[in-house]
Amino acid sequence: MGQTRTKALKKKRRWDHNAKVGFALVTPAILGFMLFCAVPIAYSAYLSFTDWNVFKAPNFVGFKNYIKIFTSDYLFKESIKATFSFAFGSTVCSTVYAFLLALLLSRRVRGISIYRTIFYLPSIVPSVAMCVLWSWLYNKDFGLFNTLLGMVGIPKQSFLAGQSTVIPSLIFMAMWSCGNTMIIYLAGIQGVPDSLREVVRIDGGSYRHELIYVIIPMVSPVIFFNVLMGLIGSFQAFNQAFMMTGGGPNNKSLFYSYYLYSVAFQQNKMGYACALGWVMFLIMILFTAIFFKTFTRHIFFEGSES
């Protein structure tokens, strides 16, 4: 009897005025999660097991969509190839390039803040404007890049129109706008305690040694996090395919999101497209897990944080 009373009291205390106010404050966020995340997720899971095509009522087809994706969907394979090569290429290249720029910016040089602004500037260009601009830069006859290449005697490239050049071209464009990553690395490099770098210098080490034995290990958790975010982000690339290449040539830039979009909104195969969405989600989860397993051992974590 006494126990139930204290329990009731405790429960009452937990739902006191203060708690009610707090819960009221977070209610919109919780509702938002339900409406714009939980309900769509459930709906999408359901649709992925149907053959719904907008025009007639959905029929339950079991795992048919999923089986088709993995066994007989040629474009799925093509889009996985295109998406992975772009995601890996752009993440690796952008990481290296952003890190190099950040290293440059971490040196004490006059006017360095101007360089920081200049290096960051490309990341501010809106994605649509960037796609339009780079299509023009890559123009075969009148674009900037072939003009520059022509000046040093290299023959004209077809860039976005070439099967082997389209992905590298899009990767180069992604590198150009790596400013956010660069700023993060710069903060990481500047956060490395001077005393540690001093130790290397006292031992007669050069800047190269500072870099290999102090800076890169200290910044490695930041690099790890950003590489993962970069992969997840570039895995979902859409605008380049939609605006610049249309997935071509010969499906070489058929990004997964773009393929999913065209299945859903041009072919109206909503059920199949939902299944594609879930496959993408599963691939990303699997991938993140593998990534964590492989790399966390090699990462230096300061203290017990992160």
Binding site: Q236, S257, M270, C274, L276, G277, F281
Partner: peptide
Amino acid sequence: IPGAVTLIPGFLI
């Protein structure tokens, strides 16, 4: 949650 999962049902709702 990637946009690809919630995209279609979001649109339909």
